[in-house]
Write a protein that binds this DNA or RNA. Structure first.
Lengths: 205, 205
DNA sequence: CCTTCGTTGCACACCGGTGTGCAATCTACT
DNA sequence: AGTAGATTGCACACCGGTGTGCAACGAAGG
């Protein structure tokens, strides 16, 4: 146990272990993204591993999903804080946010389907804090008359980033057209006029 | 077999049969709406009938779902044709359409969840013709510069009435606020300016 | 060398939902 | 009364996914 360096250099043994664990998580996102009802066996096969091994890392299917969700929340929260410069105009912040969110939403598109059903409760609770941050952003936009007030911020934020996931989960999920569609659609839903929305998007390509 | 009247008066025997059949369908919408993964047993119980009886009317679960979908398509198509007066402005037609569509979308909200998964293909194919009608309406709106053209009509129509179902499936699905939220949100997505959208809604309350 | 630990390949039990078979029952119609 | 048809209450087989147990293998690490 010689851990002299400042960095907690993991033993090559543990590193290999974490690699398979991460690979399982990555491939699970992929497989479940295509078929949310895929079984542990399908995930294991796709990861080049035996079903039993998956259970070695994740005692139950719920554990797998929960870990996936935690990752998603972490990444999305990071994306939001990166994009959120409190003194900036809310519309510009939103554009920045969706641009960074897009690839993440595409990776975690499975959560849209898993939100309902068995794991819905677990997922929803993990998503809670992020929802609040989002609602705050929309609220700021409404306070500064950048976003419309036809709906309360809590609901409007849900709809706006719900549609981003919906588009990320649809056929046109690939490439810039999808990202652009998601951005402008959500902006319109937030009450940003079309001309203004387009201007915002062209500011930060 | 005395069928003298002009109306094909069904024998009270067959009528009673159809009643249970219809009750199963109605209650299935309700049960599946709350839990899309509910089994045939749950539906049977809720309908005050034994599981075996359900299989008497619908040989397989797929048959049940298909029948439900066919009903939905029929009702929604009717709603669309009622609201569609080809010479009217597209925005007003859309408002009229969503207003009539709302209760139907709420009843058939389960289709949103069932769209993915096993029955997705069957549902999607049945929904095809309706999708085309919807795309046509949106196209007309775009041609007359009432709807924005940031997205092709086929995609925009999907998003616009997808959000109606999404709201009908959400918590605020009950009462006028939900219907109003769905109408204005979809209008905004279609590129109708907020002030114009509100004016349209107030025209036909 | 020998231990440790992740991985493997079986095995198994369990569960829940699906769909079927069949005799019994009840009710409406003849 | 007798019959046809819907409903019932079991029974059963089947399937697929879940989660566990255990012996064996194989490579890193002391």
């Amino acid at each position: 146990m010689c851990n002299n360096g400042v960095v907690p250099t993991e033993s090559p043994r543990a590193r290999s272990t974490n690699e398979t664990r991460d690979r399982i998580l990555d491939v699970a996102l992929d497989v479940l993204g295509d078929n949310p009802d895929a079984g542990m066996g399908d995930i294991a096969s796709a990861a080049g591993v035996v079903r039993r091994t998956v259970y070695g890392h994740f005692p139950s299917r719920l554990d797998l999903v929960r870990t996936l969700t935690e990752r998603a929340v972490t990444e999305m929260t990071a994306v939001l804080t990166e994009a959120d410069t409190p003194d900036a105009e809310a519309g510009a912040t939103w554009v920045e946010f969706v641009a960074r969110l897009w690839p993440v939403a595409h990776r975690y598109r499975v959560l849209l389907a898993l939100r309902r059903g068995e794991y819905g409760e677990a997922i929803h609770s993990l998503l809670g804090p992020l929802d609040e941050l989002l609602a705050d952003l929309v609220q700021r936009g409404q306070d500064s008359d950048v976003f419309a007030q036809h709906l309360p911020a809590g609901i409007l934020s849900q709809l706006a980033y719900g549609v981003v996931f919906a588009i990320a989960d649809s056929d046109l999920s690939n490439g810039p057209p999808g990202a652009r569609a998601a951005t402008i659609t959500s902006l319109l839903m937030l009450g940003v006029p079309e001309t203004r929305a387009i201007a915002l998007m062209d500011d930060q390509p």
